[in-house]
Design a protein around this nucleic acid. Structure first.
Lengths: 123, 123
DNA sequence: CTGTATCCGCGGGGATACTG
DNA sequence: CAGTATCCCCGCGGATACAG
């Protein structure tokens, strides 16, 4: 999208041997951790955002967990951490280019899930 | 897609208040469980598929875990279970209409992740 | 073949306290 | 403010045995 990566994966166009059924590691494992997708969405939606703002956007998440998630995503280069290093400390998180590409794939999924949560009684 | 649900969620068109940063429950929690997304992809890719075929498609997954995942997804009406009830028992899993909608959102995500796994050393 | 039942270990994640 | 360190517990998920 930003780099010419093909994104026209309409399901109909996928060949039988679409390589879906292979062991997914790394990022997929990361994304399966609690609140990981939400963090990506929040940071994407709120733009450059501070730690406490993310914390507030969540109703429920402990600081340790959020911190861990943030580090993992930053480590995976999905998030960038910018320190405006003075006192009081000011740090801003933002999606990297890769993070935005991820979010583009995440948003349709999340929105679809939200709709289902609403229409059925699954939430 | 099959029912007129809007699917044109290009990120650019999303307003600032895109409701991404809300507590996601139910299906999202389910999808965050181990191998859940893979199961959806496998069943989608392999069409009506038997238990043992799914088990084989995974290199590593215990029968209990697979069984649990299958039940959860069926319970959520993302999968359908069809019993051709004789002996030997023959059961086939298939995506429901909802399951296919989900898979449509999952495939771009999964494929993108796979590419990253390949290009970086994250897998 | 298609699962379920049981046991159990490991680690994810919450709470809390504390630091730069 | 922006986290990290620690403790601890729950529950996910693997292994195994067994059932319809």
């Amino acid at each position: 999208m930003t780099d010419g990566t093909p994104t026209d994966d309409t399901v109909e166009s996928l060949p039988e041997e679409s390589r879906c059924y292979c062991p997914l590691g790394g990022v997929m494992t990361l994304l399966s951790r609690k609140h990981a997708m939400e963090v990506v969405c929040i940071v994407g939606a709120l733009g450059p955002v501070r730690y406490s703002e993310i914390e507030t956007a969540f109703g429920e998440v402990s600081s340790s967990t959020l911190s861990t998630r943030l580090n993992e995503l930053t480590e995976a280069e999905l998030l960038s951490r910018e320190r405006h290093g003075e006192i009081p400390p000011r740090v801003e998180y933002e999606l990297t280019a890769d993070g935005q590409e991820l979010r583009e794939r995440l948003v349709p999924l999340v929105r679809w899930v939200e709709n289902r949560n609403g229409s059925l009684g699954l939430g």
